[in-house]
Design a protein around this nucleic acid. Structure first.
Lengths: 346, 346
DNA sequence: TACTTTTTTGCAATCGTTTGCAATTGTTGT
DNA sequence: ACAACAATTGCAAACGATTGCAAAAAAGTA
């Protein structure tokens, strides 16, 4: 590798001057600077960030920990973060936890070794414990919160989003509305459940716990929960279903298909989080959409600005709005009226 | 941050001994080692990889450059790479190029600064030029090849995969088979086109260039190409369509939907690369599936083993097999027989 | 011209590790 | 008890950059 010294020799100056020519141009005379830049160019010099960061005791890297890169939601988050980081000349280390606290712990330790400037994380259920490994480090939590006090968070308005979804079903005339919700040790699940309850309460519909099933965020969980709900005796069975995340929505819809239950004639479905799949499946799903890319981008911007502004700014918690997208998977209950005819595709 | 010196002081030994206790345990006496480990544990010591890499002139990091993390194919690739890297205690820097050679160049330069041990890359169209920036670095190309001599590649058998797809359409009785192919400066597109031609030739069907449209790998391109092909006069119009990548397949299918063309009754469709979308859309798509995760995993293993084995091993080019998955989007031409009745969903 | 001020440069220490070498300690054989 | 040897430890020099400080050069002033 070509180093500062090489450039210095070629330009006939000391390494110190080369360093300054590159990072503090105004400190070196026009002529020398030109000569140095020329030499650097010629040798294809690229500063060694390891040495640089070591000396400066601060790197130009960030850590990003998400739970599942195969989930388009998380991939989009990652892209938002990356783009923002790149804009500010930061490089990101990406880790996947697969929702496994142990993998998260390992990732945090590895990350620690690389001395990142800050950390963006979608916290696993035990993140509160794990994050003790990296006090000192400026952190922003995305999508969910671990509940650790003093940590910045960037999330969507889950309560409001869920409420809108359920409200819509209620407006259509549904009274037995099922929900498939994620693990309650994850904040998004709790909040979406709360939105569900609030909407019911506002409409004076009593909360029926037999209609609320827990899942572990995966497709398979959604599938099983849907099967269980639809196996209830017909007077107990929900006429509409609100599913708390994208993967479980997939599972639920596929299960319904397998069971031969028609959406929305026999069961209305609303999902949380939009995706191409949701938009183009038959029938196209009515969903609560999240500004996913913005979530990632903004989280990264928040982190970076807190880095430059110093500690003075208070740990803020940002909430982005969700938007309700009406498609074809909802209709009044009982199939008495078919909601399809009134609506257009897309 | 707690450093070697801190641990050394607490354990009452020199920093050198601490270093050895951690990385070459057999060199230090049982008792001291225990004392040191204890101290390290107590302080929550994590070695500074920056300093370590600087001194050793070699890091435990890899670069991974993909073209689009939002494409599930690439996300899966990334996951495979990550998992393999993690297994060997490597950390990966992830970059996105969005197929833009300029972004690729920037990514390579940034990467260079971080002194990665090796590079995995899905090369952009101008990668051959860009990769000159990182001679010295052990490289493995994934999915495609830039054509740079002496570089290891891990790809699928695109020619064979495409041939199987087209062969299937021919077997069903199709003779006017259209293809939507990617940019021909990307190796996968060239190979898939070749497979298409080989299959036609084997069946004695003349190659008709009006049936082959180029696209830029994106959904929008697939959409436009499909529209163009289906706007041909009915005697020129294809009765079947082979689409060269996943995103363009989406575009094509959605375009057909919008045009009210029924699959497979009016047009058979085969895509390249499987996905949940392809498997669950209506009708479920017949596709050539790739071992995507394995591709990423294997590419990373290849790179790492070439790192440890030294330069002795020849630059190998690995080809993985594709598999043909028959679903519901193909049927004999002309809709004379409806292929659907014979088949079951899933 | 001689002195002051400003600009430009170089010296050398430093960041936190690793590692060649030498010094110290412990072990063994006689 | 003492040499010979092995096992364990520490010293100090790297790795490639940055930066406080002081020296040198250039510019300004009287």
């Amino acid at each position: 590798m070509v180093s500062l010294d090489d450039v210095a020799k070629l330009a006939q100056v000391s390494p110190a001057t080369v360093s300054r020519a590159l990072s503090r141009p105004e400190m070196v005379a026009e002529a020398t600077r030109k000569r140095i830049l020329q030499a650097a160019q010629e040798l294809g010099y690229q500063p060694n960030q390891l040495a640089r960061s070591l000396r400066q005791r601060s790197s130009q890297t960030l850590g990003l920990i998400i739970t599942d890169i195969l989930n388009p939601f998380h991939a989009t988050l990652a892209k938002g973060v990356q783009d923002a980081a790149e804009k500010h000349n930061y490089t990101v280390f990406l880790f996947n936890t697969d929702e496994d606290p142990e993998k998260e712990r390992r990732a945090l330790n590895v990350l620690r070794g690389h001395q990142p400037r800050g950390l963006l994380i979608v916290p696993s259920p035990q993140a509160k414990e794990n994050l003790k490994l990296v006090t000192k480090l400026p952190i922003v939590e995305l999508d969910r919160t671990s509940g650790t006090p003093g940590i910045r968070t960037v999330m969507v308005d889950n309560v409001g989003g869920a409420r809108k979804a359920v409200q819509h079903l209620i407006d259509l005339g549904h009274r037995r509305i099922g929900m498939i919700v994620g693990r309650l040790d994850i904040s998004t699940a709790v909040e979406r459940l709360q939105g569900y309850r609030e909407a019911l309460q506002a409409a004076g519909i009593p909360y029926d716990e037999t209609l609320v099933l827990l899942g572990n965020h995966r497709e398979a969980d959604g599938r099983e929960a849907a099967k269980a709900l639809l196996s209830l005796p017909s007077d107990k069975r929900p006429t509409a279903l609100f599913v708390g995340n994208n993967e479980m929505t997939v599972g639920a819809v596929l299960a319904l298909r397998e069971m031969g239950i028609r959406i929305p004639q026999e069961l209305s479905v609303v999902g949380f989080d939009d995706s191409r799949w949701a938009a183009t499946i038959e029938p196209a799903l009515t969903v609560v959409a999240q500004p996913t890319y913005e979530l990632g981008f903004l989280a990264c911007e928040t982190l970076l600005s807190s880095l430059s502004r110093g500690q003075d700014t208070l740990p803020t918690s940002i909430r982005l709005d969700t938007s309700f997208i009406l498609r074809e998977s909802t209709a009044p209950p009982g199939g008495r009226k078919n909601g399809l005819k009134k609506r257009r595709r897309n």
